[in-house]
């Protein structure tokens, strides 16, 4: 436990901790860290991992329907990546002391949140294209910023995730362009999907700074290097021109670029709706958790069967008093 009350050298350690971050150094799992830093990081990385694992579901439902070999393999690979990102992120949070079993059970019990965009249905094949392009595009904006943060295991995971996301973005953009240059029906399907996903994408970056409990300490500690509004602006600056380039219209009459303040102006979403959704009342919130709970239950016999063999435990005991020959010359 390291709080001002319980640790006489708290101030000194905090100064060294903050100096290290200011120098651009990373914090490793067994470095000293304030409890608040640990708590905020566990909450944030836990939610990020949940979002990856739940995020696999809307696109996952479309895998059996993918219409060509390339799309079919790519969609399996993309959803697989998201499960892999969940794995790496749960691991990053585990290094802060929270076991994966706990994190998964809290998610399944609705006690730990995940990104609201996955509480929306993927109604058509064009939804899969928009998700892969704009939701993954938003995720990359967020992850690239978080990768400049201070906690080393999270940054190492993000480095790998960002590399894999580069495929997601190109794959999504390729799908969107294919629909945009396709038949009238394909173009309409694409525009219709964009109309449904635009508000969730704006909400993806979280409530505006004036609403969110974003503190200066989180920025100084490298837990959250940029605010929600800053990230949203980076997304809009990059993607609005590209969307318009494809001949699509963005379903927000107020969307315009404010030259003077160098920022995109948009219709403020209904943030009460946002908070209601992340509390579990989105159109597909219950459905997503139900699918994840079913998968978890149906897999229990597999987890328990191989846990029973417990070979790993025997290996650990035998490890220290082992023969002198090296297995890995």
């Amino acid at each position: 436990m390291s709080t001002p009350q319980t640790d006489p050298r708290y101030e000194e350690k905090l100064a060294e901790f903050e100096a290290r971050i200011a120098r651009g150094e990373k914090i490793e799992p067994d470095d000293w860290m304030p409890d608040e830093y640990r708590r905020q990081l566990i909450r944030l990385i836990h939610q990020h991992a949940n979002s990856e694992v739940i995020g696999a579901l809307p696109e996952g439902t479309w895998i059996p329907y993918a219409p060509t070999f390339k799309r079919k393999k790519a969609l399996v690979a993309k959803v697989q990546d998201e499960v892999g990102h969940g794995l790496m992120l749960y691991r990053a949070a585990e290094t802060l002391g929270k076991p994966r079993e706990e994190m998964i059970e809290e998610m399944l019990a609705g006690k730990s949140k995940w990104s609201l965009v996955f509480a929306y249905p993927a109604e058509t094949w064009a939804d899969v294209a928009i998700i892969a392009w704009l939701i993954d595009g938003g995720a990359i904006v967020n992850q690239t910023i978080m990768a400049t943060g201070s906690y080393a295991p999270y940054c190492r995971a993000l480095k790998r995730i960002i590399y894999e996301e580069s495929f997601h973005l190109k794959h999504g953009f390729d799908m969107v362009v294919t629909l945009a240059e396709g038949t009238k029906r394909q173009r309409d399907m694409l525009q219709d999907a964009l109309n449904r996903w635009w508000e969730p994408i704006i909400m993806f970056f979280g409530p505006p700074d004036k609403l969110s409990v974003h503190t200066e300490t989180l920025r100084r500690w490298g837990v959250k290097p940029k605010t929600n509004d800053e990230q949203r602006q980076i997304f809009l600056r990059k993607f609005v021109p590209q969307i318009l380039d494809l001949g699509l219209t963005i379903p927000d009459p107020n969307l315009r670029y404010d030259e003077e303040n160098d920022r995109w102006v948009y219709t403020e979403p209904d943030w009460d709706k946002f908070f209601d959704i992340i509390r579990g009342n989105g159109p597909m919130s219950k459905e997503r958790l139900a699918v994840r709970r079913l998968a978890h239950e149906e897999g229990r016999w597999v987890r328990e069967a191989l846990e029973a063999t417990g070979i790993a435990r025997q290996l650990r005991e035998a490890a220290v008093a082992a023969p002198t020959s090296s297995v890995v010359a």
Binding site: A56, G60, K72, V83, G86, Y90, G299, V302
Partner: peptide
């Protein structure tokens, strides 16, 4: 590939998804 995203444990989900892609 029908298991992708809903395997018994994350690690198993990932390994079978690779095999699904290979078979395709």
């Amino acid at each position: 590939s029908e298991w992708t995203g809903i395997g018994p444990i994350l690690e198993a989900d990932i390994a079978l998804s690779s095999i699904a892609q290979d078979e395709m």
